[in-house]
Write a protein that binds this DNA or RNA. Sequence first.
RNA 1: GGUCACGUGGCCGAGUGGCUAGGCAGAGGUCUGCAAAACCUCGUACAGCGGUUCGAAUCCGCUCGUGACCUCCA
Length: 497
Amino acid sequence: MSELHIYNSYTREKEKFVPSVPGHVGLYVCGPTVSGESHLGHARPYITFDVVYRYLTHLGYKVRYVRNITDAGHFEEEGREAVDKVAEKAHLERLEPMELVQKYTNLFHWGMRLFNNAEPNIEPTATGHVIEQIQMIQDIIDKGYAYEVNGSVYFDVKKYADKYPYGKLSGRKIDELLETTRDLDGQDEKRNKVDFALWKKAPPEHIMRWTSPWGEGFPGWHIECSAMSSKYLGEVFDIHGGGMDLQFPHHESEIAQSTIAHGCAPVRYWMHNNMITINGKKMGKSYNNVIKITELFSGNHPMLEQAYHPMVIRFYILQTHYRSTLDFSNEALQASEKAFRRLWEAYEVLQKLTAPLNNTAADKELDEKVNRFCNECADFMNDDFNTAKVLANLFELAPIINGIKGGQIKQDALSAATYQLMLDTFKTYLVDILGMQPLQVQQDGKIDKVLSLLAEIRKDAKARKDYATSDLIRNKLAEAGVMLKDEKDGSVSWTIE
RNA sequence: GGUCACGUGGCCGAGUGGCUAGGCAGAGGUCUGCAAAACCUCGUACAGCGGUUCGAAUCCGCUCGUGACCUCCA
């Protein structure tokens, strides 16, 4: 049995995973900024790290999963910005930050539920942790690595870099970063361009503001993650995840802040998922090429040929290793939809198969193959969460399962134990770890009764060779989104769109 | 400009030296009143050029191409 290895972005190597506290894992993932709707690109880290969370739990770790909500900062809502921020407006007409935050937080949660992402154990908000952030900033000032200018506080990166390996995570060299300073002369209050804000003074029109030792303002972008992760996971915790684009400057800054405040680097394993691209370009706000999650689910977007079920998106994401880029296209999503449908149906067939009672397999070679397919899944997950390979192996089982049902493979080809192993593998990997759910809505049984009746009438018609009637039933049901299938044994099954 | 990735069959995508994933699409076949599904068979691909090696998609070098980060960004 293999052991879990994780690719650590910090060392750029796969490392054996050993938690700092035996049996426990602290997992922190950068959450959404709730000033707008999440798009497909955002879905990737949340699904990726959901699987990480599920897998660690499966391995028996007690995981504390923390994912923040960034609800503080410089907030604008499309079409409601600038003007709304003017304080003279009547109160109810004004953009109320918490209203905005509430709206998009709810929408985010809605999306996460549909993706079947497990809820984090703690979902701290930045606005709820301003005190912790202020304390941390003060601590950094006291230690001489931050300075205050006109009500804002900046981190002294240059001083930090003299003593610590600033830029290691993102592969940046401090000297080069300092050099680029030249093209931006007159660079306001910072001592060096590389310095970043820990606290920003709030201009009069800024609506989100808190009192601090340095006047009214709001926390800088990076400090919230450091303050909240250390509060809930400790000064050193195991895994920090997020998108690759956050490596610099966000995560680099986190390391610097925490190193000064706590005297040690905060994270043991850094994990970064790659981007989703569209026509080869990163999907992102600045490229104006995003497809929002609501649009994906509804199909309401010029680039979408159809709506896509959340499980199809999830499957599509998990069919690729998380560190590879993943290109969006209707073709790819449609392929995923078909593929997932086939895989899930094989799983359902498997559950209905009558397992043999024999303890020995008639087809030893096949039996061994199936065992290998099943047992390899653990190795694949242990190899830096290779969900793509896990799915490939499950697909290998599909023709075997269908073959048994269809009679191409004899019932006793596999041993009873192997049947059970297949069942366990699907349940454990597809359902529990990859978090997949059926596309079909669970029916309450009434529909099934109606369909049974129709199937029976059709069966009678067929027996009388009244194909006009039997085809009418099938065609009309197809129009309604119900596919009837005549099985080999004379029974009829159906799937509902 | 600097730094770093990547370039796999029609499409999507695994793969860190030999055992040549997987999915979708396509072709042929079996089954079937028809249909759908399912099953069987079929593709020897790794940007180009050199090099290392008994042997490279996989290691090294160069060339070309694409992208990411350097500013808010999952």
